[in-house]
Design a protein around this nucleic acid. Sequence first.
DNA 1: GTTCCTGCAAAGAGTTTGCATTGTG
DNA 2: CACAATGCAAACTCTTTGCAGGAAC
Lengths: 164, 164
Amino acid sequence: MQIGSSLTQALAVLEKYIAQKGLRRTEERYEILRAIYEELTHFDADTLHRHLSEKGSRVSRATVYNTLELLLECGLVRRYTFGEGRTLYERSLGRRQHDHLICIECGHIEEFCDPQLGAVIQGVGMLFNMQPIRHELVIYAECTRSICPNRKESATFAKNELQP
Amino acid sequence: MQIGSSLTQALAVLEKYIAQKGLRRTEERYEILRAIYEELTHFDADTLHRHLSEKGSRVSRATVYNTLELLLECGLVRRYTFGEGRTLYERSLGRRQHDHLICIECGHIEEFCDPQLGAVIQGVGMLFNMQPIRHELVIYAECTRSICPNRKESATFAKNELQP
DNA sequence: GTTCCTGCAAAGAGTTTGCATTGTG
DNA sequence: CACAATGCAAACTCTTTGCAGGAAC
């Protein structure tokens, strides 16, 4: 199973990073990694903290922030800033670089990879004599279907008309 | 002269918006618009406030925020969130939609327009059955020249070797 | 005069930091 | 048993809000 195996891989990466840097293996770090790799896709620090609390974990907000920093360092999560400064994280192990499309109706996030984009970016880099290192493309869009499956107001619609 | 004329245009837009909405023409609003259209390119709210204070203006931080909101509404400025949640504004009148390339050495910002990007975005929209409304592409890049003209440490280099 | 707008200061959100305590190596 | 990591609360940054006084219409 996909998720299970990427958690296993992620644990290995964290393990290795911790060993290499002489850090300590605390239960909190594993708890947090597990929550991220088992359950969360796009999340902010506070959601992660709340999530853990609800499951009975006692990790503090500070530890969540510290650990996210650690996971960023070892490449296990990526951090994005969307829209009006919303900071979101997502797991990154075994995932290709991708970009995001956000529904302006409901905030739902889709991911995509477009090979043509690479060419555009390389072209821009050359234009300025700069070497692109990374990029972020966010497309804000609205649903063209009469019912946005993610729109809040359409929740009832969805119940009545969408479910088979 | 370019800047002068776009300030004039911007004033006209603000004037019209104010009249239309039955708002008041306060000196502060004009001061802020003037600072933006005469002097600042990419700036955050606090920089703008400091800038005004240094010029002897008495506008408060709150008014700066309020006015930026107003200028956003009437399309005279755009707001972006770069990198680690830096919120920056820039004037938008008479400027095409463009994207940004940021030097990771020094934070210097370049602007570019790439027509191919539009095609990429339309394609992605179609893929998800969504209508793209706006987008933000930020490319983080490093300078390929031995001296980054913007790099802090290269200030002396630049002095010695770059100036003709 | 009415209402909008301002300045101030206080409140909020999100994140970071300082410090005593805990627990890993 | 040393010292990294934690929890807690306080600090910090950026932004918003509430309110009283002042200005525009």
